[in-house]
C-alpha cells in the first residue's frame, strides 16, 4: 500500500447555514498528482479551503496520518502544505520581492535568496518587476507570483486552485511542465483544481469529479479521460 499524503473522510463544509460540501472523501497518495474536476459552484475551492481550515468544517482530514482538521491555518502551512488560492492570494501592497520573501516566512535556512533567484529564472517577467507592487502586476504575472510564492515555503503538499486562470496558453503549458518536473524531481505531491481538464488529466495520476459537494466519479486519470460522461461534461467532446 502506498503512503497517503492526505486522506479525507466524510468532509462537510458550510458557509453560514449553507452546506457546500456534503460528506466528501478522497485520498492523495504521497508523490502523486491528483486532480479535482467539477462544474462552477460544485465546491472545489471550498474543498481546498476546508483542507487549510479556512471555513467551518467537520469530518476527518489526515495529513500523513495526523488529523489536521482542528489545526490553525498557519500551523497547517508549517506542516508543509502550500495553497495557491483561486484569485491568486498575493499581497497587493507588497513588492514582488517581498511577496517571495514572505512566502519563505516559515523557513529558517539560508537558501531563501537562492530559491528566489531560481524562480526569477523560471519567470523572468517577475525579475523585471521585482520592486513593483504585486497589485500593479497583470493578472497572469500575479498568477506566476502566487505560484512562486507558494513554492517558496518548500511544501510537501501543494494545493493549486485553477493555476491556469488568466494565463496565456504557452505560459500554461510551461507552468504545467514545471509542475510535472517538480513532482518527478522532488516528489512534490499536488492536489490540483482545474477547469482546463485536458491538461489536468494529462498531468494527473488520479482524478475526482465533484458534483454539488459530493464525489460523483473517481478513477485513474487516463481512465477518466476516456469516460464518456467526463468527456461530455469537461472535455468538450
Amino acid at each position: 500500500m502506498t503512503e497517503m499524503m492526505l486522506k479525507v473522510e466524510d468532509l462537510h463544509a458550510r458557509y453560514g447555514a449553507v452546506e457546500v460540501l456534503r460528506g466528501l472523501g478522497f485520498e492523495v497518495p504521497d508523490r502523486s498528482v491528483v486532480v479535482i474536476l467539477g462544474a462552477n459552484g460544485a465546491g472545489k475551492t471550498t474543498t481546498l479551503r476546508a483542507l487549510c481550515n479556512m471555513c467551518t468544517t467537520s469530518g476527518s482530514i489526515l495529513l500523513e496520518g495526523e488529523d489536521i482538521s482542528r489545526a490553525k491555518t498557519a500551523d497547517i502551512v508549517r506542516r508543509g502544505v502550500a495553497h495557491v488560492p483561486q484569485g491568486r492570494g498575493t499581497f497587493p501592497e507588497l513588492s514582488v520581492m517581498d511577496n517571495l520573501r514572505i512566502g519563505a516566512y516559515i523557513r529558517r535556512d539560508k537558501e531563501v535568496n537562492a530559491d528566489i533567484g531560481r524562480w526569477f529564472e523560471i519567470f523572468p517577467r517577475l525579475e523585471e518587476r521585482r520592486d513593483q507592487l504585486a497589485g500593479s502586476l497583470s493578472g497572469g504575472e500575479q498568477q506566476m507570483l502566487a505560484v512562486a510564492r507558494a513554492l517558496m515555503c518548500r511544501p510537501r503538499l501543494l494545493l493549486l486552485d485553477e493555476p491556469s486562470l488568466g494565463l496565456a496558453p504557452l505560459i500554461i503549458e510551461d507552468l504545467f511542465e514545471r509542475f510535472i518536473q517538480l513532482n518527478k524531481e522532488t516528489g512534490l505531491t499536488m492536489l490540483l483544481v482545474e477547469q482546463n481538464a485536458n491538461l489536468a488529466l494529462d498531468m494527473a495520476d488520479y482524478a475526482y469529479v465533484i458534483e454539488s459537494g459530493e464525489i460523483a466519479l473517481h478513477g485513474p486519470a487516463d481512465q477518466l479521460k476516456n469516460d464518456p460522461a467526463v468527456q461530455e461534461a469537461y472535455l468538450g467532446a
Binding site: 491555518t73 502551512v77 498575493t90 514572505i102 507558494a150
Partner: peptide, 13 residues
C-alpha cells in the same frame, strides 16, 4: 503582509 491581506498571510504560515 498581514496589513495587506490577513488571509494570504495565514497561508504563508
Amino acid at each position: 503582509a498581514v496589513s495587506s491581506s490577513a488571509e494570504s498571510a495565514r497561508l504563508v504560515g
